[in-house]
Design a protein around this nucleic acid. Structure first.
Lengths: 320, 320
DNA sequence: CTGTTAGCGCTTTCAT
DNA sequence: ATGAAAGCGCTAACAG
């Protein structure tokens, strides 16, 4: 095994000089630097990362909490995080929680015990209060518009995005608008619900509980929504669908049920996933990869804002 | 920071005894063991994994090479790998290659330089010869039926699976069968192509190059396939589609193009993904999660076979 | 600019 | 059964 001491010997310098060269520290003479690089190249030497980690007291591991790995929303978020992680020589530890608080606490405890250097929580189920308790142990980054000053976050203004989509539908004449969502309880979901309720009040509409469809995550969940709609006496004439996958599933199910889109049911998806383009679904684009990248930077505590909002955009296609 | 020495002091034993207790080594007296655990609990002490890694000369990192992260096929594979990795206190380093050989070599080099302990290659683009050169540096596990004795692998007999599907279609009266695939050049793909050609010969069919559709990975790729088919003078009457996602996309596009499934075009998907169930697509089930789990065990060199075949099963629904 | 030195916290012989 | 002690390979404070 060729280690730093061997390189030092070969280059006729001390181990610390080798370390300096390897880490690009400035004050090393041209000759010695060259000698070191020669030795490194000759032996094909690489630093032992374990030793680096121990010495630095860091793991170079970033925890990423997501409810599901196989969902494109989180897939893109992770893609963005991963992009920068690689650049920065970090690795990721993925915690799939399925929204079980226990799993989240596990991740938090890994932070506490220094088994990861920072934690990015893409979607949480435990209360902010719990999370705050772990703030002393390392950087924690959230993906929601939190009022909690102490934690960094990158987020979309879901209140505004929802309002924009609702307004768009309203302009097209819809008054019975419903929406589909993964779960009602999340922070982002609550912002959307608020936007929804405010909108209904503003337009003198009537709030109807059965116009909110929960557990809408995957393509196949669209079927259930359409089944319910066809059995309603007062079905919505338009739907905000917080995932393009689900919107696509609804579109397909509508065809099966001889519902015409947008005439019988208008649809606005979210995320501008490739599937929405193919199926010509009107959607709200949000740059998830960009959000992911910013989350990583915040985890690193690079000189970035602690609160970063990412803008969204309505993309009109053929389902409204 | 509470470390092993502090625990040793508190428990009135030596650091080595603490280490023995922590690692469940046998020959420690009941009293001392208890004393150690008491100290551990009192201080909420955890081992410093970096120190463990350095001392053991292992990273407890397993590399996983996949072409795409956001594809359900690889998603399930990774899920299986990840399941066991967590159990074994390992973390994963994901290498998304997009089928660029350079990325694969990068992963291989990380193995060479001991930055990961083993490498699982779920789908490769570099030749077996290249991979063999890295075998000295650590365990490398493949996901294909390789003849190379030196590497472990977990795989599906794609020749047999394809033959089964083709036979099923043939029995239903189809003679013009085509297939959709991600890429032609992979090891698994070549087995399938072989099965396809053998089948055609056996049934006295005629091989038609334009009945093979490449670049079929995602839902939205189905559209292109249907577009091509509708423009053919000799279109296939049935399609083997190596991903349920794509099969679903084809199904949707068929409806748009007023092609009736299975009458105008029969479909057999692969993987038995949830979407195939919802859309009632006949499919070939293969337990991808199980394959992933076995890949991990092979990477660990646990006492498992070096070559493990996972059985598949035809699930009849309504697209044939 | 460069070398010496003292760790980082754990594992693992080797004695006893 | 237990402890002493020697590393693992690197970093960083310090001295010069």
């Amino acid at each position: 095994m060729t280690n730093i001491r061997k390189i030092a010997e070969m280059a006729q310098v001390s181990a610390s000089t080798v370390s300096r060269v390897l880490n690009g520290y400035a004050y090393v003479s041209k000759e010695k630097e060259e000698a070191v690089w020669n030795a490194v190249n000759e032996t094909n030497y690489r630093k032992n990362i374990n030793a680096v980690h121990l010495s630095k007291g860091k793991t170079f591991l970033i925890g990423v909490v997501i409810p599901f790995t196989n969902h494109p929303y989180f897939g893109q978020l992770v893609e963005g995080i991963s992009d920068l992680a690689i650049e920065h020589q970090y690795n990721l530890v993925l915690f799939q929680t399925n929204y079980h608080e226990k799993k989240e606490i596990e991740a938090l405890n890994m932070l506490k015990h220094k088994q990861i250097d920072a934690l990015i929580i893409c979607s949480r189920t435990s209360p902010l209060k719990t999370i705050k308790e772990y703030l002393d142990y390392g950087q924690i980054v959230l993906c929601e518009d939190t009022k909690e000053d102490a934690v960094s976050s990158t987020f979309v203004d879901h209140y505004q995005a929802f309002t924009m989509a609702l307004t768009h539908l309203h302009k097209k004449g819809h008054t019975q608008i419903g929406y589909c969502i993964g779960r009602r309880s999340g922070a982002n979901s609550q912002n959307r619900e608020l936007a929804y309720k405010d909108f209904i009040q503003r337009t003198n509409g009537r709030f109807q509980e059965n116009h909110i469809f929960e557990d809408c995550l995957y393509f196949e969940d669209g079927e259930h929504v359409v089944n319910q709609i066809t059995q309603m006496t007062n079905p919505p004439t338009a739907l905000l669908v917080t995932s393009d996958q689900v919107a696509a599933g609804i579109l397909v199910s509508c065809e099966n049920s001889h519902l015409s889109v947008p005439d019988d049911l208008a649809l606005i998806g979210f995320d501008n996933q490739p599937i929405s383009k193919m199926m010509k679904i009107t959607t709200i684009e949000m740059n998830l990869v960009e959000i992911g990248r910013n989350l990583f930077l915040q985890a690193m505590e690079e000189q970035v804002e602690m609160k970063k909002e990412i803008a969204v955009q309505l993309i009109e296609r053929e389902t409204v």
